[in-house]
Simulated scan of single mutants.
Amino acid sequence: MSKPEPGPRTVLITGAGEGLGYETARLLVAGNHHVVVHGRTADQADYAVERLVKDGTDPLRLDVAVADFTDFRQVATMAHLVGEAHRRLDLLVNNAAVAGPETRELTVDGHEVTWQVNYLAPYLLTTMLTGPLANARRGRVVNVSSPLHARANLEPADLAETRRYLRHAAYARSKLALTMFTKALTLYGPTSLTAVSVHPGILDTALLGTYSEIGLHPSEGAHVVAQLCTQATVINGGYYNDRALPYRPAACVEDLGAVQRLWKASAHQTGMG
């Protein structure tokens, strides 16, 4: 178990321009935290901040960060700028995600889009921010996962998914990798860092099509994510369901050999090792 720092904290939320990320930002900034709002574009991030300020948020408690996760250079630049602006980062919420295209597409870095946006980019961002997270002494990473992760398989020899591409399968495997990354952070991250993954529920966002045709308002899921961000203690490396309760993840999440192999492959794919 680990407890976060008391009092207001500095929080970076990816994909905070809309949907679950925006609603989570709204809740955390209302809790007197300083929130860094990430958007894929500057216009998206700025518009989110404008909406928050219009709702009564003190603009001095908001910052913006911009990066298109299909480009590692933008992610690295964003991590550098956030680290320069915030020597201490108490909380990182890896929320940004895409459902993926109908047919296989590659990013400028040569990776399948869903794999890079939903997993490799969060891996790169998190590892580049371990310094500021460690400076918080009790920093926390919250990875937004999905129960679909339990239906996925990772083939170490074909992480690029060149043999066969199915949109829903690509999404599921990206969430499996992110959930395994949560466990990996307990092994390879700073000793002071706590990491959890959480399924926020089936929500009416751009990702709804991967689950169902009906979903709850994103604010419902935001309460779940915000609870995992702020509650006094969490299980380090734990996976939580849409009621913010510990839940058993896919078996390979607990397979430390598989976690280690994924960590090494991710470091290679992102140029971090």
Score class of each variant (00 low, 15 high):
Ala244Gly: 10
Glu254Pro: 01
Leu27Ala: 05
Leu187Pro: 10
Ala251Lys: 09
Ala177Lys: 10
His38Met: 12
Ala65Lys: 00
Ala250Ile: 02
Ala152Trp: 14
Leu129Asn: 01
Arg164Cys: 14
Leu166Asp: 15
Arg61Val: 12
Val198Met: 05
Thr194Tyr: 12
Thr24Cys: 11
Met1Tyr: 03
Ser145Tyr: 06
His33Pro: 01
Thr107Arg: 08
Glu254Asp: 12
Leu256Tyr: 14
Gly189Asn: 14
Thr107Ile: 03
Gly131Phe: 03
Thr57Ala: 01
Ala244Asp: 00
Thr191Gln: 15
His33Ala: 08
Gly221Pro: 06
Glu5Ala: 05
Arg261Asp: 15
Ala157Ser: 12
His268Gln: 15
Val66Met: 09
Val75Phe: 03
Pro218Leu: 10
Val198Gln: 10
Gln74Met: 14
Val144Gly: 13
Asn236Asp: 07
Val98Cys: 00
Ala25Pro: 00
Asn241Trp: 02
Arg140Ile: 02
Tyr239Arg: 01
Ala170Leu: 15
Met180Ile: 11
Glu105Leu: 09
Asn118Pro: 00
Leu245Trp: 01
Glu155Asp: 11
Ser197Gly: 06
Ala160Glu: 12
Val64Cys: 07
Val29Phe: 03
Ala150Gly: 14
Lys264Cys: 05
His217Gln: 11
Ala244Trp: 08
Val141Met: 03
His268Leu: 13
Glu84Phe: 13
Asp242Glu: 10
Tyr188Phe: 12
His34Val: 06
Leu166Ser: 13
Leu262Trp: 09
Val49Asn: 05
Thr24Leu: 09
His268Thr: 15
Glu84Thr: 12
His33Met: 04
Arg138Phe: 07
Glu23Asp: 08
Asp68Tyr: 02
His34Arg: 06
Ser212Leu: 05
Gly139Ala: 04
Thr179Ser: 15
Arg104His: 08
Thr41Leu: 09
Gly238Lys: 06
Cys229Gln: 13
Tyr188Ala: 12
Phe181Met: 12
Val142Leu: 01
Arg140Cys: 02
Ala30Cys: 04
Leu185Met: 14
Thr70His: 10
Ala42Thr: 10
Gly83Phe: 05
Thr103Ile: 08
Ser145Gln: 02
Leu28Trp: 04
Arg261Pro: 04
Gly31Glu: 13
Asn32Lys: 14
